[in-house]
Simulated scan of single mutants.
Amino acid sequence: MTIVHGGCHCGGVRFTAQVPIGSTLLHCNCSICAMTGFIHLIATHQQFELKSGESLLSSYRFNTGQANHLFCSQCGVKSFYQPRSHPDSWSINAHCLDDYDAARWQHQDFDGKHWEQAKDKLESNYENT
């Protein structure tokens, strides 16, 4: 395991998380991820700690309403959120890590335009590892 630190642009929202070394970052092409450049690093709820900024977080939900997109009300950055694909985890935006280095991580595409099929494929990949 390794500990990562990050937050939003203005610094109001700060977090730490424990994630497995060499975790896979998911690159999603759904409408919101494509527009915001969000790259997913998954951390379970137990492995994530919001250090500051809870009162600054605003919520946005669309489509099924299951995902809770949280963003800083001061600077507008979504540094983490509750995805519908991983209900027991937070999805951290790798771009919001203090020391983000793309070469440090594995990378995998997630076809969010075809969410149900992509979720099934993701689950079968985890079951086979």
Rank of each mutant, 00 (worst) to 15 (best):
Q46T: 04
I32E: 05
D101S: 13
Q18F: 02
C28R: 10
Y126R: 13
G76F: 01
N93D: 14
C96Q: 10
N125A: 12
S91G: 12
M35K: 15
Y81W: 15
G7Q: 11
E116R: 13
Q47D: 15
W105T: 00
N29Y: 12
M35Y: 04
N128A: 15
S73R: 12
I39W: 07
L57P: 10
V4N: 02
N68E: 10
F38N: 01
N125Q: 13
S73E: 04
S89D: 06
Y81T: 03
W90F: 10
S59G: 07
S73D: 05
S23G: 06
K113M: 03
I42L: 08
Q82D: 06
T44R: 14
Y60I: 09
T36D: 12
G7M: 09
N128H: 14
K51S: 06
G37V: 12
G7L: 10
Y100L: 02
A118M: 13
R14A: 01
E123T: 07
S79W: 04
C8F: 02
G76V: 01
G12R: 14
N125H: 13
R104S: 02
R61W: 02
N128I: 13
P20L: 10
L26R: 12
A43V: 01
E49Y: 04
C10L: 09
T44C: 05
D109F: 13
F110P: 05
G76W: 00
S55P: 03
T44M: 07
D111K: 12
H40T: 00
N125I: 10
G12W: 10
S79M: 02
V13M: 03
I3R: 14
H86V: 02
C96H: 10
S52R: 15
N63W: 13
S31G: 11
P87T: 04
H114F: 01
D109I: 09
N29E: 08
L122P: 02
T44N: 10
E123L: 14
F15W: 10
G6Q: 09
I39G: 00
L41P: 00
A17N: 07
F38C: 04
E54Y: 11
C28M: 09
Q74Y: 05
C33K: 07
I39T: 05
F38K: 07
